[in-house]
Design a protein around this nucleic acid. Sequence first.
RNA 1: UGGGAGGUCGUCUAAUGGUAAGACUGCAGACUCUGGAUCUGCGUAUCGGGGUUCGAGUCCCUGCCUCCCAGCCA
Length: 558
Amino acid sequence: MAETDSTPTHFIREIMLADKASGKHGGRVHTRFPPEPNGYLHVGHAKSIHINFGLAEEFGGKCNLRFDDTNPSKEEQEYVDAIIEDVKWLGGDFGNRIFYASDYFQQIYDWAVDLIKKGKAYVCDLTSEQVRETRGTLTDAGTNSPYRDRSVEENLDLFTRMKNGEFPDGSRTLRAKIDMASPNLNMRDPVMYRILRAEHHRTGNDWCIYPMYDWAHGQCDSIEGITHSICTLEFEDHRPLYDWFVENLGIFHPQQIEFDRLNLTYTVMSKRKLLKLVQDGLVQGWDDPRMPTLSGMRRRGYSPQGLRNFARNLGVGKTNGITEFEKLEYYIREDLNKTALRVMTVLKPLKLVLTNYPEGQVEQLEAINNPEDPSAGKRTVPFSRELWIEQDDFREVPPKGYHRLYPGNEARLRYGYIIKCNDVIKDPVTGEVTEIHCTYDAATRSGGESRKVKSTIHWVSAAQAVPVQVNLYDKLFNVENPNVTPEGQDFTVHLNPNSLTTVQAWAEPDLAKAKPGDRYQFERLAYFCADKTSTPEKLVFNRTVELRDTWAKVQKKG
RNA sequence: UGGGAGGUCGUCUAAUGGUAAGACUGCAGACUCUGGAUCUGCGUAUCGGGGUUCGAGUCCCUGCCUCCCAGCCA
């Protein structure tokens, strides 16, 4: 995961550098990546993974993968499995250090007893509504719970009975005794445990009380000897509570550090919203290639290296911003350009006949697999009298600046010959162009003598072409920030109805050997990735990201 | 209106009292058997007002704006 080139430093690295210099924690750096298994990981997590695993590696430390599984009503094993796969795929090295908050339930319980004995926690009989009512407001102090001053003995007894299942769900809580007048609402006697009878994906029905995030997280960090507990900005207000717990317990004190989460234009990043897209069938699952999930991006063809480069170049700060989607695409293209094999595929076919080319003749032309990487080698492409070319590469009436094929004009067939367009065949009824007739110049075969022509187009020999189903993906949303919605409507109103178009295409025969997950560049078009459902009998490709298209830009401007 | 955190090109990030820099985007051009890639050039920024200082994006005061917090979610 180490990156070689220089990137600007950031405040978290500075903190670690300072801690190392001062000998804090013996100069040790140990981080953790703590997802809740209630959904799939998304690009935002890629940033967090990069920070936590990257910094640990950089400082010669470790980063644990820890599941924050303190709420069994939302968490599932499916998510655990998917998260592990995604972190590995991105290159996060957690060795055998997969931990769960639930591993520590007993210890956390014992510590709660500790706090009760110290008079710093109490069992509260208020209902959740009453707790809310007595919490006060942003401007007014809360009021003490009438159960706040129970004796240690009574608290111990009640808490034991809570654990033993003597009380119904929601009837009681264990709360920290801090300060109901604190301007920080998190300090107004926060709930530590709630009674909740739900089967836990790991502990089954062993427990009917579960610790809240605030009561569990820092303690888990402490148990694992985490030195720097990195989380997102919304937890800044929780830091005093985080500190209060470890201090009052007198246990190892990790430092919580907050950074700004990633936001991307044209995408939603909240797990709640992503879940809705999946549950409402608005996409075809968590790994739908249009999803900003890591599994969706993987299926779409994004490479781990491209994602890492992106994450590294984001920087780490504390400002709430929104990164342009184009930046992500840039780093994906940059990596794919270096690694993806080139191949010719025609998405919108138009028949082209070389009238002076011998019928039945087939030549094998040599083509370069990746001009950016000589070690990728070469392949051959069959060439014959009848070809498919892209509809966009022919215009009966060329617009200004167009220098592909049009009547009377010459163009080169990639890796083949220079051809000249002579005739246009149209459907007598519709007037639609059905075929174009050209002649080829036998002296101009690729590699031999040449003369300048203004454009080179891709093609596929009709007789040898293999059919491919191609999924053309576009942005899932059609506005920069789908979270901003008109009154009474939700983010789904911004769904792009054209985010998926499927076409049948013709590809050169070499593509038939593609395995699911293989990434290619269909020359002059875009990068594509063989879908997980693709087989040699039925090839399916997903468009990852388009090539930059200068001509399209020129046209758009008119 | 309490508390917390922020505000530098269109976007993201640097500059740690000393020439406001880079990346993405945009625009223009070169090159090209991918209108790809590559290369070159151009453009736009310190939230406002005071102050300290030889010198302020940075320090002080003051105002403004944005985000987060009133789950027995994380």
